[in-house]
Computed example of a mutant assay.
Amino acid sequence: MPLYIHQLKDWAQFNWSQDELINLLAEVRQLQGKLLGKVELLGFDLKDEANLETLIQDVIKTSEIEGEVLNPELVRSSIAIRLGLDNLGIEHSNRNIDGIVDMMLDATQNSNKSLSEDRLLAWHGALFPTGRSGLYKIEVAQWRTGDMQVVSGGMGREKIHFEAPQANRLENEMQKFIAWFNQENSLDSILKAAIAHLWFITIHPFDDGNGRIARAITDMQLSTSDGVNQRFYSMSSQINANKKSYYTILEKTQKGDLDITEWLKWFLTCLKEAIIASNLIIDRVVQKHQFFLNNASKITNERQKIIITKLLEGFEGNLTSSKYAKIVKTSPDTALRDINDLVEKGILLKSNSGGRSTNYLLNI
């Protein structure tokens, strides 16, 4: 008896209960329409800013799902440079970050282009520029040649959650998947994103990076569904927030039959939550824009602008004069003068704690 859906005779001929999905799908479509309507009112510059903030979250969270923590400043810098946007602060390059950014931007900004074997291999090559995943050498920019298992547990207590198709099936499996993705036009575009995610993750064609590429394919299809090549909600952020249930539903679906109703319900619910959460990003972008409109004349120099921008974007921890000096690469005396100037003008508020623990908050 087959253990996994890819071993079933009718593999990839998925079915589902439309009746169980219709209300949820309609709700997602309504939220999608409201969000895009709200975005249209932002104007060109704020749309670019909202797109940037969403892409930053997408890149950070799709990596976090795999246990990799990226530097948000480097991610911001990489995306801003590629989009030609104003980038305050760090501009150092990081090959690993640049690679995942290149993949995500190609997927979402060029969603009208066909998916191809060459494109997928290029994405994989971009994800692993050194030919290694951590300390381990892997097969890069080619389908894997070995078996693939998803395993948890320590030595001697391993639990196999999933076994992917054997390597000798991959060429044929990927040809079928790519042809379907490029030619399937009758299916609801959101459901197509959900099916594409499941189908690709089941094939697991690479040595590593399958999850990140599956989510890039998902974002590519969602961009098509939205009808815009900018991102205003992050599916990866929501998957990361629901990571345990994500892996649970994937494993359950892999070991079930070809009725994928439960997976589609999970995906639609996650997408619904992602769209609702996007309002936080948009509200923050608007707040940042309004703050600078109200206070632009009070900001004396670029150092102050950099710090205020970071505070508006979600500064981690408390702002102190020493942190200020380190971030903008200036002397402690200059940092303190800048801060006192902002306090006097009512832009920053001084906390009650004194001495070395003195810190400052944005007055919003």
Rank of each mutant, 00 (worst) to 15 (best):
V151E: 05
G256K: 04
N51G: 03
N352H: 11
W263R: 09
S133E: 14
V328D: 01
I97V: 10
L319H: 04
G131W: 01
I203V: 11
W123L: 10
S322A: 15
S237G: 04
N168Q: 11
L8V: 10
S225R: 05
P129I: 04
Q7E: 14
S186R: 14
H289L: 03
L170G: 01
N363V: 04
K34S: 15
A50Y: 00
L280F: 10
R303F: 07
A296Q: 07
E20Q: 15
S78A: 14
S225F: 11
T330I: 09
Q32A: 02
N15L: 13
R132Y: 13
L349P: 00
L21H: 13
D333G: 01
I60K: 08
F232I: 03
S78L: 03
V328E: 05
S278V: 14
A277M: 12
I299W: 00
L191A: 08
E302M: 14
L42C: 03
K305F: 04
L127H: 05
F44Y: 14
D45Q: 04
N168R: 09
L31S: 15
I5F: 10
A80W: 00
A164L: 04
F177G: 12
H124A: 12
L135P: 04
Q183G: 13
E53M: 12
V150K: 08
K288C: 02
A216F: 09
R303D: 07
M1S: 15
M220Q: 11
M235C: 13
D208T: 08
G314C: 07
K350V: 13
N15K: 15
S322V: 11
T224R: 15
L8H: 11
N229S: 08
R231H: 05
I327Y: 03
D102Q: 11
T54A: 12
N112T: 14
E27H: 07
E262R: 15
G84H: 10
I22P: 08
F206G: 08
K244R: 14
I81Q: 14
K288T: 10
H289Q: 13
R337K: 15
L52E: 04
I299P: 00
M235K: 04
A107W: 05
T62Y: 09
Y324E: 03
Q287G: 00
I56S: 00
N168E: 12
Q238W: 05
R231N: 09
M155N: 15
S77H: 02
G154K: 05
A12E: 12
L31H: 13
V28N: 06
K243T: 05
F181Y: 10
L127T: 06
S114K: 11
L280T: 14
G131E: 03
K298I: 01
K38R: 15
L135R: 13
I79G: 01
I276S: 03
S236E: 09
Q304I: 04
G125C: 07
Q57F: 04
